[in-house]
Design a protein around this nucleic acid. Structure first.
Length: 350
DNA sequence: TCACTATCATGAAGAGGGCG
DNA sequence: CGCCCTCTTCATGATAGTGA
């Protein structure tokens, strides 16, 4: 049972009428029943209640009394834990408390590895004890080592899933290293320089007027190997901006209808539906945007049963394609040479 | 025992609808 | 079209639990 929802429960018990998350948050904070360091405490309170109702349905302690207003569910009786009675028995999660001079578990690990490892991997237990000793880590948990290792592993997993380079490297048997140890200073500089260039490329693209953006997409498709690429008359043809044909081995011909969206806001599902409605019988659809696609738009694009699937290129992918086909950027002649350590020894190169 | 996992709590952003 | 509001979902940080 969560402390926030318990407090909400107590407050609603006292209240004669349903309450709005905003009122609840204000009252909870004013009465010292809950505190929040976030910018949107009312959103947090609202989210917790919404999720609780969604999760427990009729068995939730709360019900929606009216649009945006909540009250107690009369069909559910709840015994709130008595702090005195249950002391030491109920497992209560400690709230993370960030005090001055302390860092999160993962930030601690990074700092310890940077300053105290001598660029050699460390065991998570050593990292934790060093962090506690220095006062960089403040926790009331019973197993800070486990929390530390969990944080490190979770961060690695999450960042890899996002296609990002994790800060940490898992070396087995609880040993942890930093990924930056593996890359040279020069590589890091190049990566960061290239990231900046990609951002500038995106900014330049956002400054193009819609017609010039369509022209850019036309050129890109030509470079990618499409033939008969042409822009459709501006403002007409149900949203199709560019058409082209991809020929594979002179045998297979794929007709492509492209919609170009030079947008800041994410592309929503109606755009996908609109393009699908404008496709010829033998055409495949593609939407290219400088922004991204909503989940709904991606789901809609993937729908295959009796629907033509639509391909999507988002802003990041677009920039990558511009780089690959040297549009608006060019790669210079420098290449990094890296020695193969095992080449001059007996070891087999892996 | 300890490396690793499941789960929780929270904050914030996103989606989408209504309205002026 | 932009703003506001409700509601949902995701990311993050943290903890205790699990099982080899």
């Amino acid at each position: 049972m969560s402390s926030l929802l318990d407090s909400v429960y107590l407050l609603l018990q006292e209240s004669a009428s349903p309450m709005h998350p905003k009122e609840l948050a204000t009252a909870l904070i004013q009465r010292g029943m809950w505190s929040s360091k976030g910018k949107t405490p009312d959103a947090t309170v609202g989210a917790r209640i919404y999720c609780d109702i969604k999760k427990h349905g009729d068995q939730s302690r709360f019900i929606k009394a009216a649009e945006g207003f909540f009250t107690l569910n009369p069909n559910v009786k709840v015994e709130l834990p008595d702090p005195g009675k249950n002391a030491g028995k109920a497992v209560k999660r400690k709230q993370p408390e960030k005090s001055a001079g302390s860092y999160s578990f993962s930030d601690c690990a990074e700092k310890i590895l940077l300053h105290f490892s001598g660029n050699a991997p460390m065991h998570y237990r050593d990292i934790t004890s060093k962090a506690l000793e220095l006062g960089w880590l403040k926790t009331e948990g019973l197993t800070p080592e486990a929390s530390m290792y969990a944080q490190i592993l979770t961060e690695i997993q999450r960042r890899e899933k996002q296609g990002k380079i994790p800060r940490f490297e898992k070396l087995g048997n609880g040993m942890v290293g930093l990924t930056i140890w593996k890359s040279t200073g020069l590589e890091r500089h190049i990566d960061s320089f290239n990231d900046k260039q990609r951002k500038v490329l995106m900014e330049r693209m956002m400054q193009l007027n819609p017609q010039d953006f369509e022209e850019l997409i036309t050129t890109l498709l030509s470079k990618m190997g499409f033939s008969e690429v042409s822009r459709t008359p501006y403002g007409g043809d149900g949203g199709v901006d560019v058409r082209g044909i991809m020929t594979v081995h002179d045998v297979i011909h794929i007709k492509l209808a492209v919609q170009a969206k030079r947008w800041k806001a994410n592309v929503q599902s109606p755009v996908v539906q609109q393009l699908r409605g404008s496709l010829g019988t033998d055409e495949r659809g593609l939407i290219v945007t400088t922004s991204n696609f909503s989940r709904g738009a991606r789901d809609e694009a993937r729908r295959t049963s009796s629907h033509t699937p639509i391909d999507l290129i988002d802003g990041d992918q677009l920039v990558s394609l511009l780089v690959e086909y040297n549009l608006g950027v060019r790669k210079n002649r420098y290449q990094l040479l890296e020695l193969t350590p095992s080449f001059f020894s007996d070891e087999e190169e892996i």
